[in-house]
Amino acid sequence: MAKIEIYTKAFCGFCARAKALLDSKGVGYEEFDLTMGGPKRQEMIQRADGRTTVPQIFIDGVHIGGSDDLAALEREGRLDALLNA
């Protein structure tokens, strides 16, 4: 099973949508809540090539992008292969 990391904030609809998709796949993920900022926010920005919006999603250390990017992988039929790698 792939290692999934997702950076989120409270009350973020895009974050909720991304987590719901991952939950529907039955996969676990490590969530980093950036609501209060802190060092994890800087970590996310560095890992996500300067992106500052949430969510930012990583699968096995590879930056996937945000909620729309995750949904696009699902529509294209490529998400399951990444999750089960």
Rank of each mutant, 00 (worst) to 15 (best):
R17E: 14
M36Y: 08
L73K: 00
M36D: 15
D68K: 03
L83D: 02
A2H: 07
N84I: 10
E30K: 10
A16W: 09
V27I: 14
L21D: 09
A2Q: 07
F14T: 07
R51N: 10
P39Y: 03
T35Y: 12
A20V: 07
K40T: 06
A85V: 14
D69E: 13
G77I: 04
L22Q: 03
D49S: 12
I57T: 06
L79I: 07
D23A: 13
T52A: 09
I45T: 12
K19I: 08
L34P: 02
G28Q: 12
P39H: 10
F14Y: 15
Y7A: 02
K9V: 14
T53R: 02
D33E: 08
E30W: 00
D60T: 10
V27T: 08
M44D: 01
R41G: 00
M44P: 07
Q46S: 11
S67K: 02
M1N: 10
G37W: 11
G61F: 11
L34A: 01
E31Q: 14
Q56Y: 06
T53C: 07
G66V: 04
E76Y: 08
R78A: 12
G13P: 11
G77E: 05
A18I: 06
R47F: 04
L82F: 06
F14N: 09
D68V: 04
K40V: 07
C15V: 07
A20Y: 09
A20G: 11
Q46N: 14
V54Q: 00
R51H: 07
A81L: 11
R51G: 03
A72E: 15
C12F: 06
N84R: 15
G26W: 13
P55M: 04
L70F: 03
K19R: 14
T8P: 04
G26S: 14
A85M: 13
A85G: 15
V62K: 12
F58E: 00
L79D: 02
I57F: 02
T8V: 15
L22C: 10
Y29G: 09
V62C: 08
L34T: 01
P39T: 14
R41N: 01
V62T: 11
E43N: 08
R47D: 03
Y29L: 09
M44N: 04
E74C: 04
L73F: 09
F58D: 00
L73C: 05
V54W: 00
D80N: 14
L34K: 00
C12E: 05
A71H: 15
G61N: 06
L21G: 05
C15S: 12
E31H: 07
I64S: 00
D69A: 06
D69I: 04
C12I: 05
I59M: 05
T35S: 15
G65L: 04
I57P: 00
D33Y: 07
A16I: 15
A71Y: 11
A10W: 09
T52Y: 04
M36Q: 15
D60A: 10
K3T: 14
H63P: 01
L22H: 05
